[in-house]
Design a protein around this nucleic acid. Structure first.
Lengths: 235, 235
DNA sequence: AAGGCATGGTCAGGGAGGTGACACATTGGA
DNA sequence: TCCAATGTGTCACCTCCCTGACCATGCCTT
């Protein structure tokens, strides 16, 4: 924890300023540009590094704060073993833990670091205090949550119907960063409620058709346009 | 439209007061009790009656306001024909249209009145102005949206896995009002991404086992506890 | 270098659910 | 009162995906 974050609200250290700049970047579409309130939030943040595989909170428990992803990826998991379902992933600027805190209910998902993750942590008290202190941030948070909700609804529409091929193509396009998807085929399957074997069959078909290249825990998308077409067939 | 809603913010008519009481009831878990801001919102509301089957906005268009359900049921639909998917339903206190307005994006679902519906309508401008004017209401709205988001995530977890039986049992429990589900079997099937025939098979099985009674566009749940058990088998 | 563990690749068999079809019931409006 | 639209009930067929199994490969730790 940076000493400058201890000095209170009036004096703001360089770490907090960097954090504020990052937050403003994250919420650039949700906050009036250059709004000073980002600093109020940045001041309460605490940097946290997560190792790959680390679990930050578990299904059925109350998170003790909010995590905001700065780099790396988190995944939201429900169930275990054969019934493991990956409800979603959080890439940079993603937020975890706020919904259970707002509702005072235990989390419905376990949140796990898929890669090493740099994150900003905001304690439960700090989170609620920030919302009370800054209407502009509350409004921005509302918009950010609306964004996540829309994404979840889209996912539901896509996972309810369509062949394994079309759903897989859609998922790959959604999960890609720089035309590459970096997670195991088993995890991809768990995002669509299908089995590893089925996902592997689809992926190898795609590879044979030159749509992508397969590596270890890595898929490189070679023909995004043709994949997009596959995603729309029999939607 | 009530004349009293035209008199401005200072004088509040009885209709607005009734609306405020209703809103306070809806958001009782989200707003500090007795908070005066409910009146600010109630003052902008306009009563709207919807006939069964009426569509209030369509997938791909921009809603011109926010609808809040006072009685009856709305359904959120995506796709058409064979690919029709029912993403969710809104029962009393449900809200439609706010997410697209907040994001400035077109709606991903068509919203349709499943029954005759009494609703309160809030224009787009009124909605945004209300959020700007009342931090407490913004905060309440954030919590209400968190609630919907949690519900959507639960739905996704349940629809990704499990047999037709367990998913159907879960859905019936969720959609029931007073131990009865009032919609067609086709619509129930569309909520789970399955076919009418499959849903019918499951329902008739349930009926043979005494779990429910089948009517025209109506299912009466007779053994909620045993249904709940069915919902957990092979989750 | 070696071992353990996670992941990738593949196959045969079986079953759950989709497909298309048809008859009948119910509802609500002309 | 009749008719069209919508919903219910059921069937035979067939496809797609799950199941369980097995081995190969890549990665990390010791």
């Amino acid at each position: 924890m940076d000493a400058s974050t201890r000095r209170g609200m009036t004096v703001v250290g360089p770490a907090a300023q960097r954090a504020a700049a990052w937050i403003a970047g994250c919420m650039r579409s949700f906050l009036p540009p250059g709004h000073i309130d980002a600093l109020k939030l940045a001041d309460r943040l605490e940097h946290r590094q997560l190792r790959q595989g680390q679990i930050i909170f578990t299904q059925g428990t109350h998170p003790d704060g909010v995590w905001m992803v700065r780099s790396g990826e988190l995944e939201l998991v429900a169930g275990r073993g054969q019934d493991r379902v990956v409800v979603g992933t959080l890439q940079p600027c993603g937020i975890a833990g706020d919904v259970p805190l707002l509702l005072g209910k235990p989390a419905v998902c376990t949140v796990r670091a898929r890669t090493d993750v740099q994150s900003s942590f905001l304690s439960a008290a700090g989170f609620l205090a920030t919302l009370d202190a800054s209407p502009a941030l509350t409004r921005a948070w509302l918009t950010a949550l609306a964004h996540r909700h829309l994404r979840a609804q889209e996912a539901q529409v896509r996972t309810l119907h369509g062949s394994a091929e079309s759903r897989a193509a859609w998922l790959l396009l959604r999960e890609a960063r720089d035309s590459a998807v970096t997670c195991s085929q088993g995890t991809l399957a768990a995002m669509l409620g299908m089995r590893r074997q089925t996902m592997n069959r689809v992926i190898k078909d795609f590879e044979r058709q030159g749509l992508l290249r397969v590596g270890y825990c890595r898929l490189e998308l070679l023909a995004v346009d043709r994949l997009r077409q596959r995603a729309q067939d029999r939607a």
